[in-house]
């Protein structure tokens, strides 16, 4: 009897341990966001958004950084989406079981775990030096596109796999070719899940710093990029640069820039979650 009671108390205690763990993660996140808001929010104004970098913290702004981030976002999306979705479609619909399919699958699982800085080294050698793109937006975007490719591929495959086989059968039975079936039935039916995956992948690319440092993104760029071949900086680079400086003014700038970056990243995640939830409600299967 006594033993059973001890066990019950242990059970309850453990439950509270679980609650504490769960909440601690969220509380840390909250403390952390609050801290940054307190530090940085009063620094955000129009001149902060529209000023070039400067060695005086009060005059420095993030114009080149956020335009660079915007460029990187668009270019990376343009490169990674077609390739990632294409590869996902190939792996799920075309590749026949065998050594090649196995190799591709293991390879993608492994790529997803390669540290981002290694992609930076790849980008530096292949895009910056061998292909001669220099430390340009294009080289940076290509590097980030390779980095997020596994995420998009996996999301595409899962989305396609969720489309009922019966729909494909119906399409084939009406005389549709494989590509007609994929492009007119499978992809539209899985579009919202694929888009969710793409947005989450891009939100990752937008927050990356390490590979861009290796590729050669600059900390100080006194002009707004006009073409994909221009040199660039991005918000995470700018934050890293400001964090590394001792003056308090730059710390505040970093906090302010973090707020802008987090707004962007969380907005993307919010959109992705919204699309996913809406699709889940609508989906018949």
């Amino acid at each position: 009897m006594n033993n059973a009671r001890v066990n019950r108390i242990k059970d309850v205690l453990f439950k509270y341990f679980g609650i504490v763990c769960t909440l601690s993660g969220l509380i840390i996140l909250a403390i952390f966001i609050l801290n940054i808001l307190i530090d940085g929010v009063q620094r955000i104004d129009w001149s902060f958004m529209s000023s070039l970098p400067s060695r005086f913290p009060e005059r420095a702004g993030i114009l080149t950084a956020w335009t660079g981030t915007f460029w990187i976002f668009c270019l990376t999306a343009a490169i990674a989406i077609p390739i990632g979705v294409g590869a996902g479609v190939y792996l799920e619909e075309y590749s026949k079981k065998g050594w090649l399919a196995n190799l591709l699958e293991i390879n993608i699982a492994n790529l997803a775990g390669v540290p981002s800085i290694i992609y930076g080294i790849l980008g530096l050698e292949v895009f910056v030096r061998i292909l001669g793109f220099g430390a340009s937006l294009l080289a940076g975007s290509l590097t980030l596109a390779l980095l997020i490719l596994p995420i998009i591929i996996v999301a595409t495959r899962e989305a396609i796999r969720a489309v009922p086989k019966t729909i494909k059968e119906a399409s084939f039975a009406l005389g549709a070719t494989k590509w007609q079936t994929i492009s007119r039935q499978v992809l539209p039916a899985s579009a919202s899940s694929i888009i969710t995956g793409i947005i989450l992948a891009l939100s990752r690319a937008v927050g990356e710093t390490a590979p861009l440092i290796v590729v050669g993104a600059l900390a100080y760029v006194p002009f707004v990029a006009k073409t994909p071949m221009d040199e660039f900086t991005v918000l995470p680079m700018q934050i890293f640069n400001w964090v590394s400086r001792p003056q308090h003014g730059f710390t505040i700038n970093a906090a302010a820039a973090i707020i802008v970056l987090l707004c962007f990243v969380f907005l993307m995640i919010g959109i992705a979650v919204y699309i996913r939830n809406r699709a889940q409600k609508k989906n018949p299967w």
């Binding site: 729909i167 059968e169 119906a170 009406l174």
Partner: peptide
């Protein structure tokens, strides 16, 4: 594809496209 235009099929479970 040509064959399937001549030979239609109706499946066990109704499977309209969404």
């Amino acid at each position: 594809e040509e064959l399937r235009k001549t030979v239609g099929m109706v499946f066990q479970k109704p499977n309209p496209f969404p």
